[in-house]
Design a protein around this nucleic acid. Structure first.
Lengths: 205, 205, 205, 205
DNA sequence: TATGAATGAGTTTTCATTCAT
DNA sequence: CATGAATGAAAACTCATTCAT
């Protein structure tokens, strides 16, 4: 039993390691500047062996994307424990601020991946990053709807958009402080949102 | 006279064509996925000849960046004709909205370039995109200051951030409509900003 | 067992073949006029595969240099079997004379390599050839010292210098006979060296 | 007259500058690592213009070689003013010693050129360096013959060989001191040579 | 499955030489 | 003659993918 289970266990382990490291290295170096050998080395898996787990480099990129997606799911489901939707959104902003150093160094994983993959015309990969972002949009939209706010989907776009924008700027200017200041601004904006406000005039850009 | 001017004129022409096409193709395909041959073909210049004008691929990338920077300068100096700073900012938003199809297809040129170049650790190129963005920030900050608003630099970051965010989302979701809706939101936000408001609470995220 | 050893054995084989052929071809054609394709062809290895064994062309050059260095070590350690240091030096001269045809055709491998590499200002390669020559100088100096002669290091320089000079001339004039005549002269010089001679006046130029 | 002479004068000037700079730059950087552009820049002549004076790069190399040859001629004819052949040879050694820093940096111009050109199989260039060296051999042989020494041609080979060897070592080890010490040794050797000595045993290696 | 090695198409870059004016 | 520009044939190097055990 253990005998037959071991190789499978080890195999699953390798796949896991590959996925984790792919997510990390691809985020740090970008898709195009990362070689399979880079990921293999980081995961401590022989290059030739990678192909037993992922048939192409694109599959590894997809796996990395799923990894980030899973992280997001895990985070949102934890936030869902909070009773107040507004608190959930604010807690998410807190999480973003906590990641400010990573964001300043490498940007938002999903956002930068989306930028890179959108440059592609081949394969089915170029739309995948959008899917993850859409998931985040849906979750946020759900919160705004729960708050009884008008145009919840639009608010969600504004919310996520603000996050992507501040990540990009923090990254481009290599300044984590931007995450803090804009995070605070997002906080205030969430607080200012009023269920009675039917105009949304004071919304985030 | 025109005869003797021709070779020089044509040479300048070629350099111009190369720069223009580089800016376009690099924006469309991304830095890493664009080969020199791609740019050469687009500009109708033999590959080997490209190196007469640009010593390395990086120099071409830099030229493309300068091109985008020049576009921005041209745009802002045109906006500077408007008497009201608020109107200038709103006109800029209009310009962004006008570009919504390009943004949805390829993102903001400077923003996506910044994302790609930040993945690099070599050369002096990785900080250049930040410079262009900083220029935009300064211009915007100038307008907010002229409006007598508190924390003008912070408002500028919020403003540019919103633009980068909505461009990224429009691109990732391939939806130009996002540019319109978020552009409208930015408009309303600019209108809502009040010189008397010392909190900036209702600011864009 | 031999089956599982094969790939590794063949791989080591290839590396060996590449090194051997690199040493030969680089000596024959010179560093700058030898392409990787030349070496790959000589070693019967696909060009792209060369990079599996040597990351750059410079590494191959280094390997070739080491090969020549190893040859020298092998030769001197064989000569060390001889009881009399003077006989060792004379036997080395004999070995040089034996190589007269190669020398007339392509010069001394280490000497010509040194000349080529000294033209470089980049990398760490430009000093490596000197190291091999220094090793020969040390060995020769050791023999002269064992003979109780004054200024043994100076004599070593004269000795090696004479070899390099006659190789260069034999090569430039394409005349192996020069190796023979100057070799004989070196022989006589070694014989004439007297432990009692404190002046070294009759030394080789 | 001056009008029609000017362009010709300027033309001769350019040719001269090109030759001089070619000699210098080719010596410093080596034939293969020097581009036509390098030489053109050094001579302050537009690249395209070089071809009106030299049809190929090889012709420029040939010109550089002739330049070194002319230098040698000039030097030897000056030495020929000295009444004693032995003094002429010793004065030549002095001249070599005076050049020790150049030799340590770039080797003997003719010697290193010979090494590089001998690596070639094409053209008529590969034998040309030998010609210059042969000229030096002849001059030296003439002196030894005038001294009434046996085997004057052999002594000449030993003499030139010693120079090439010490230059190569000085260059490989980047040590001008080698030129001084071996030059002194050559001096002593020249002094020791005796017209009555029929053996040549104490000759230079 | 595992793994080092192999492959070959592609990419940037260089440069002698030629051309148009 | 002069000159900036053009050309194209290499060359080094990279890397995703495949192969042989």
């Amino acid at each position: 039993m253990t005998d037959s289970a071991k190789p499978r266990a080890r195999a699953a382990d390798k796949r896991r390691r590959l996925t984790t490291e792919a997510a990390r290295v691809l985020h740090e170096q970008g898709v195009e500047r990362t070689t399979l050998a880079d990921i293999a080395r980081a995961a401590d898996v022989p290059v030739g062996n990678v192909y037993y787990y992922f048939k192409t480099k694109d599959e590894l990129v997809m796996a990395a994307l799923s990894e980030h997606s899973a992280h997001l799911d895990e985070l949102t489901s934890r936030l869902d424990q909070l009773p107040d939707p507004r608190d959930r959104l604010k807690a998410l902003v807190e999480a973003w601020i906590d990641q400010r150093d990573v964001a300043a160094r490498h940007g938002c994983p999903t956002g930068t991946l989306a930028v890179e993959l959108d440059k592609r015309t081949d394969g089915t990969l170029d739309a995948q990053a959008g899917t993850v972002i859409r998931r985040l949009l849906e979750w946020a939209g759900h919160q705004f709807r729960a708050l009884g706010l008008p145009d919840p989907d639009d608010l969600a776009v504004a919310f996520v958009s603000a996050y992507q924008g501040m990540s990009l700027l923090a990254n481009a200017l290599r300044d984590p402080d931007i995450m803090m200041r804009q995070g605070a601004r997002l906080h205030r904006w969430l607080d200012s949102l009023d269920a009675g406000d039917q105009t949304g005039n004071s919304g985030a850009g």
